[in-house]
Design a protein around this nucleic acid. Structure first.
Lengths: 346, 346
DNA sequence: CTGAAAGCGCTAACAA
DNA sequence: TTGTTAGCGCTTTCAG
């Protein structure tokens, strides 16, 4: 069954006017007599006329739609970002199409291709698997407005909105050190991701400051960004097989953090006595877990807001943009029970 | 700056052919010589030609897009449903536009209006505030394919996909009763919602079966569906002021459930000793909370799959659909610590 | 086998 | 003040 909306043509026919008169009347053009306007508007309302946005898009060669590419919607960090984006999009009368890569490079290529022709601009956070960025570079070169957030591409000149990952990692690691944990493992998504590079740098810097030599065997990555429990399981198994088993884990993503938690729970490893755990996460519930989880929380909503603002500004700018901004937001450390040895509990 | 994709016209000009020949060649029409085809296809590829989907949409009077209306993306139940929908949409080459009402009637009207013209069909779960359904009825009457899921409208004839809410509520309440809780409070979103009606019936039936007379004062609703912590706070305060204070809470939504948890936590009310808590939730982390939360979990992904399948089938059906299916999926009860008195711990 | 032209719904330059 | 026409990118009769 077909949904057949009423068109300007229908109205014109019904009222014995031309399409253009109707169009102008509806847009309240100065060249239409007020009587005609009234008639048209009244009739349009009575038949519940709505302009066909597709026709408008074709005409104006724009869609008033922005595309979002994230790794997973069902991830509090990204869904909060999306909320931020939506609030700005709504304000500026843009629609939003959300796509998820599920951390897969293949899917990223596919969704970006699909989006490419139907949006006015793109808000992208890379998938964990992505190493080659040709598919994005191409679009960018052809003038598609793109703003990167969170997992950005350093080599492409564009607006970027990120957290201060270095600082977040540095303070989390320092917190662990101050609480007596010296053998700190680092679990990241994949080394190609900008955020992971910076987080690793922060982690290393904190160790160095404390005079601790980093161990290669403590630094681990998840091929699929921690999407699958098995990846994380495998990594922790490896860590636990080491002669000098780590006494703390610093994790780089929500998914990895909660998967670590699951592992410890399933294997009767007690936090924070057997091992400490801190990680990037934007999940509200982490405060209610057993034990409550120390986290580094990002200003997700704000990231979305800033990214959307920059993108819309760029889309609507008359001339090409040459000056790009890089907005860096501070993450916040929440110190809870999973990183404080019982005796030290404050 | 503008993103200017190459069009069929460009190719035609470059190759000294007509638009129609190019179009046909690209669609591999039988009436085009294989040489011409080769030339065109090769050239198109070399310039990275992509058909303009907007033009196609206008032509075909369809958008290959389905619209989703949920109350909140950042809600595990809905994001899992969305994943289910997306998987089917992708298979069938449909795009998806996700919108959220944030439980507001106003927003629901707005997003549905926006969607109405740009999608081929709608997947709707009502907002908690919605009582009047004229905005949806109108679309439906005009032939827009709509499938309802979760919070459905009984009075509209359409495909519907839901959980067996009655059963979920019945078994959760029965579980509480069997564990010695007799004074069970019921907290729902709003009484106008189909799911809440059924859950209340299940709750009442379980009480009756156990020979317990329900108390009006134990049955509470959240005007905004539990979106705001304050609503839930207010309700629990009311419950706790009763002479005969409840010893258990049965909650009807993820948001309410976690907000109850927050309240208890903040006010040093110990679960399950001071009070028991069970609720509908699809959050994985509930199993790791302190105490671990008993929940009724719905087959969210499956709901999305079924709803999307029905919708796409309806969109693509040649003739009007008169037979509507109502798919009912069983929820699953997860019994954990928040509803089992310490002595009873298994 | 290929091209010209119409049309999807809308706007806007140009006529009247 | 209103109508005619062309055109956005594409497909598809209808002619050649």
């Amino acid at each position: 069954m077909k949904f057949e909306p009423v068109t300007i043509k229908d109205i014109a026919k019904a009222l014995n006017l031309s399409k253009s008169t109707v169009s102008r009347a509806l847009r309240d053009s100065y060249e239409i007599s007020s009587e005609t306007k009234e008639i048209v508007v009244a009739y349009a309302k009575s038949v519940n006329y709505r302009p066909n946005p597709i026709a408008l898009n074709l005409k104006e060669r724009r869609s008033r739609t922005i595309g979002i590419v994230v790794s997973e919607i069902a991830n509090s960090f990204f869904s909060q970002i999306i909320n931020g984006i939506e609030s700005i999009a709504k304000e500026n009368d843009y629609n939003v199409i959300i796509t998820q890569t599920l951390e897969s490079y293949e899917r990223e290529i596919e969704v970006i291709h699909n989006l490419a022709q139907s949006v006015d601009g793109l808000l992208i956070s890379l998938s964990s698997e992505t190493k080659d960025i040709a598919h994005i570079q191409l679009l960018h070169d052809r003038g598609m407005p793109i703003v990167f957030f969170d997992r950005i591409i350093e080599s492409i000149e564009a607006h970027k909105v990120i957290s201060d990952d270095y600082k977040g990692a540095y303070s989390a690691t320092t917190h662990l050190l101050e609480n007596g944990y010296k053998k700190i493992a680092f679990i990241g998504n994949t080394p190609n991701l900008s955020i992971i590079k910076h987080r690793k740098e922060g982690y290393l810097a904190a160790l160095q400051k404390a005079g601790i030599k980093p161990k290669e065997s403590y630094i681990k990555y998840c091929e699929h960004g921690g999407m699958y429990y098995e990846e994380v399981e495998e990594i922790i198994n490896q860590l636990f097989k080491l002669k000098d088993r780590p006494d703390a884990v610093f994790s780089c993503s929500d998914k990895i953090t909660t998967n670590c938690f699951r592992y410890f729970n399933a294997n009767n490893i007690i936090l924070p006595d057997d091992i400490a755990l801190i990680g990037f996460s934007n999940l509200d519930l982490t405060g209610f877990m057993k034990p409550s989880l120390s986290i580094i929380k990002q200003q997700a909503f704000e990231i979305g807001v800033k990214a959307a603002e920059l993108l819309i500004k760029q889309i609507e700018s008359k001339r090409p943009v040459y000056e790009y901004s890089k907005i860096v937001l501070d993450p916040e450390l929440f110190i809870r029970d999973s990183t404080q040895k019982r005796k030290n509990t404050q």
